[in-house]
Design a protein around this nucleic acid. Sequence first.
DNA 1: CGCGCCGTTGAGCCCGTTCAAAAAGTGTGG
DNA 2: CCACACTTTTTGAACGGGCTCAACGGCGCG
Lengths: 259, 259
Amino acid sequence: MHFFVKDSADFVVTPPVQCAECHVRRLALFKPLDPEEVSVAETFRSGYRHLKAGSSIFRQGEDIKEVYTLHDGWAFLYQNLVDGGRQILRFILPGDFFGFQADIGNGVRIHSAQTLTAASLCVFPSSNILDMVRDHLDLGIRLIWMTAHDEAVAYEQVVSLGRRTARERIAYLLLDLFHRLRARRQNPNEIHTVEIPLTQELIADACGLTQIHVNRTLKSLRNDRILELKGGRLHVPDLEVLSCEAKQNYNVFTKRPML
Amino acid sequence: MHFFVKDSADFVVTPPVQCAECHVRRLALFKPLDPEEVSVAETFRSGYRHLKAGSSIFRQGEDIKEVYTLHDGWAFLYQNLVDGGRQILRFILPGDFFGFQADIGNGVRIHSAQTLTAASLCVFPSSNILDMVRDHLDLGIRLIWMTAHDEAVAYEQVVSLGRRTARERIAYLLLDLFHRLRARRQNPNEIHTVEIPLTQELIADACGLTQIHVNRTLKSLRNDRILELKGGRLHVPDLEVLSCEAKQNYNVFTKRPML
DNA sequence: CGCGCCGTTGAGCCCGTTCAAAAAGTGTGG
DNA sequence: CCACACTTTTTGAACGGGCTCAACGGCGCG
């Protein structure tokens, strides 16, 4: 593996993909728009970018009035600490909408975002997002829905970091990514292996651990035949076993609490 | 202190307060509505409840199609774990809007909510919240804003639990509550003491620690003259010192990142 | 071949936990 | 007003999960 290049903001602009034939649209903010409304997305979109692995999308403190949909590749949201530490807040997969934050108008970023692999993304101006909501109510409601969903996901991570052991946190993170990746495939049920381009350091920064302890914990999970993470591939023999290991609170299929 | 009574769902319904003269409206979902639109809130509201300390508002797994504004008292959002543990997700203060979650229509709760002191709250049916958004676009936009804000707060807690020490977590939590409480007063600047009805166990469950270690950490913070928490009162001699101790990432006044 | 990034392993330490028990408040009833 | 029950706070002692520091091996790339 060797996913990163030097942190750089340069990018290439290419002729936009047509929204109507976009392969991630079924997951995105603009999901179930009728054909004529898809053009709304297209006219609203202000750009399309290819980024190298490890490029910065935006940084804490920058004033960038844009929101994004990831089209290809991986990215992540994070925050840097005064002591040099880093906390990863969310991994972003193709189709995910991100970069939307409370302070509309004042675009000063609270978080940073960076690509993890080579990636491409659709760019929308956030300044007139309220106009868009006004004109297309369905989009507004979907925006509410998505933000509330992200909040619930964030709270799940709070539970992880606050009350779960290293083993459980890592199991939970990988289980979550496994589900999200599998949902993007055609025949989700027979899949036991997915591509996950995470280094142990990234897992550590997401789980609030050190890279070394992530290493030892992964070894222990491997010895117990619960999961195997090697060369960018995650293999999960039995999902039930992993779910149990992760002590998850609600079933990700039924979206219902398990208590 | 002795805030809790047995967990019970019984409550008293009283004649509703008039929204127009509600003392927390400036903080709430219905904040800057012009007078005629305030009646919208009133007609939309389906109830007003007084709850004893320690009452359940809703529980994980229950199917309750309501959202709330806390009118008086304290409450908190939490999640129970399979092993009996508890993680507090958010403390709710007067004026705070809560109970809104991604799955509109399917109201099965992912989290639980409980009053911490005697409290009263306004109840709104969540089933037709989408109708409300449709008819009153400003409310919809404010709902988006609030949900995005809550997400940012949740992420801040992720950073706390993932990358901060016990001392920093507790300092951060109390600093946050201090600011939120102070903002509800008339002359916020001269205030150095606020009422905080938290037990050490509640702080522990919010910070991902044990009650015993919270006790020792509070003692150490007291010895260092950073804060004093006794008999339900939090005294902060110097806000700057506490902010520094909390290693906060963005200034809560300017709402800008500090890096 | 050498350099840089990533993964692996070992030894020792420390922050926070667990277990245990006593002290200090708080509310209730006699 | 005191006795009593119960909750909350405080303190001690010992354990352990995860961290720090340090070194080495593997792999891709220039």
